[in-house]
Design a binder for these strands. Structure first.
Length: 153
DNA sequence: GCCAACGTTGGC
DNA sequence: GCCAACGTTGGC
């Protein structure tokens, strides 16, 4: 099993939104970046751990953890002309965009802000810290996962 | 709101 | 296939 960090803007979809979904489970739709798509489609497996990261907010940081409960399948929002994620080049016959289902494991009792993560040497190699990184889905090492769980409680 | 960094688009 | 222009991301 592997670990991942999924970014979401809480004004669009927050960890509390996931908590109020049926079965606390929801498809992670709307990813429209090929690198992230490839990870969703090829590398992210049932039971993998997900850090739920809040971006473009104050403060940014990790809000809790989720797990993958369904592996990649076509993202139907790409087929819907009324969806903000619509992509005319993605068809049901030849889908371009994929998603997985995630289920909330728990919201951290203590939110872990980005600023605090940056102070911790064990997290210094995280991909989200790399200059110019804009990927909304990135792999996380087992060590980083362990460290974050310890820091956040 | 700024702006660096990067991805995508489209003319050639 | 090149590359300039444009759009987006996301921390600050």
């Amino acid at each position: 099993m592997r670990y991942w960090l999924f970014k979401s803007e809480p004004s669009t979809f927050s960890i509390d939104d996931l908590a109020s979904c049926a079965h606390q489970t929801e498809p992670w739709n709307g990813v429209r970046n090929y690198q992230a798509r490839n990870m969703l489609r090829d590398a992210i497996k049932l039971g993998d751990g997900v850090l739920f990261y809040h971006s473009s907010c104050e403060p940014p940081g990790v809000a809790g953890i989720a797990e993958v409960v369904r592996e990649a399948y076509p993202d139907p929002t790409a087929f819907d002309p009324h969806s903000p994620y619509y992509d005319a080049k993605s068809t049901r016959q030849n889908p371009r965009w994929f998603m997985v289902d995630v289920k909330l494991v728990r919201k951290f009792s203590q939110f872990l802000p980005l600023a605090e993560m940056k102070r911790h040497p064990a997290l210094s190699e995280m991909i989200i810290f790399r200059k110019g990184n804009r990927l909304s889905i990135t792999p996380v090492t087992a060590n980083e996962w362990k460290t974050i769980l310890k820091l956040a409680k």
